[in-house]
Design a protein around this nucleic acid. Structure first.
Lengths: 146, 146
DNA sequence: ATGACACACGTTATAGCATAACGCAATTGA
DNA sequence: TCAATTGCGTTATGCTATAACGTGTGTCAT
């Protein structure tokens, strides 16, 4: 009884652990570290970091979760399903950027074609083949920076 | 005998530990983790991670070293002194981006005004005050990706 | 059916990255 | 001279991530 449970929806079917981790992240309004997620899920039988990391690996692969490199933390994907989350794997919508408030912890996810394009041009000019691009702006959000 | 040693040059005077760390990073052609730096400096009396981290903190503050968030590693600043490294502290040359080869480990540092500008515009529109921006492209460099 | 395979899972142990908290030494400057 | 600041060294600890092992279950070609 370990295989993914099929759901009525379209997105990839998640296993129990994957669902639990995704739910916790979705309910959070700030990024969570793997260990924080682990603590939230102790009541659901989670005992070891690997249970979280393995679920996160899959969720990252599905594009349902993002990793914030500058925080060593994770967030549920926040941009519209139509642009990314629903679709299989390659999902051609480009790189996502994050604005992270260092005061309240809130994260805004956004996308800018022009930025994408410029970085792509640089890569092409240098014959560099991008695999994954990270863009994170840390600072103060409108509410905190007043 | 712990104070910074003044040098004939312009840039901020470095203490012994700061110089040692900076030299090691400068000689390396790939990013180094703090612990790798530590190991390289054992012969020079380094015994504990904090000795490295404290030096790195200062070098980061001086703009002489960058931290690669997606690697938890550090590189010596590679762009021309005239644009950044030499000057005091605020240094208004904008955000730097990195292209990191996942095969050979080589890192290219570059700057794109347009990208900077776009991200700045987004921030302004959202009333977000940026403090530090991270842009890292991971992939294969020209030499490795052929 | 059955056996090979892929995959999710659970557990223990370990590796790798970073900082807290203490105290000492040297420099600066009121 | 004394207080404040800064760099340094040490010990201990905390946080982040993965290696390596074995189990169970579903899939599918034979």
């Amino acid at each position: 009884m370990n295989a993914p449970v099929s759901t009525p929806t379209s997105a990839p079917a998640l296993t129990k652990n994957q669902s639990l981790v995704f739910d916790v992240l979705t309910r959070s309004d700030a990024p969570m570290s793997a260990y924080t997620i682990l603590d939230r899920l102790r009541d659901h039988g989670f005992r070891a970091p690997l249970q979280v990391y393995r679920a996160l690996d899959k969720l990252l692969e599905f594009g349902m979760v993002h990793r914030l490199e500058s925080l060593n933390a994770f967030v549920a994907c926040a941009h519209p399903e139509s642009e990314c989350c629903g679709q299989g794997h390659g999902h051609g919508h480009g790189t996502v950027a994050f604005a992270i408030c260092e005061s309240c912890g809130h994260v805004s996810e956004f996308h800018d074609h022009e930025v994408d394009h410029r970085l792509g041009d640089w890569a092409k000019a240098k014959n560099f083949k991008p695999a994954k691009t990270t863009i994170e702006i840390r600072g103060l959000c409108g509410a905190c920076g007043a």
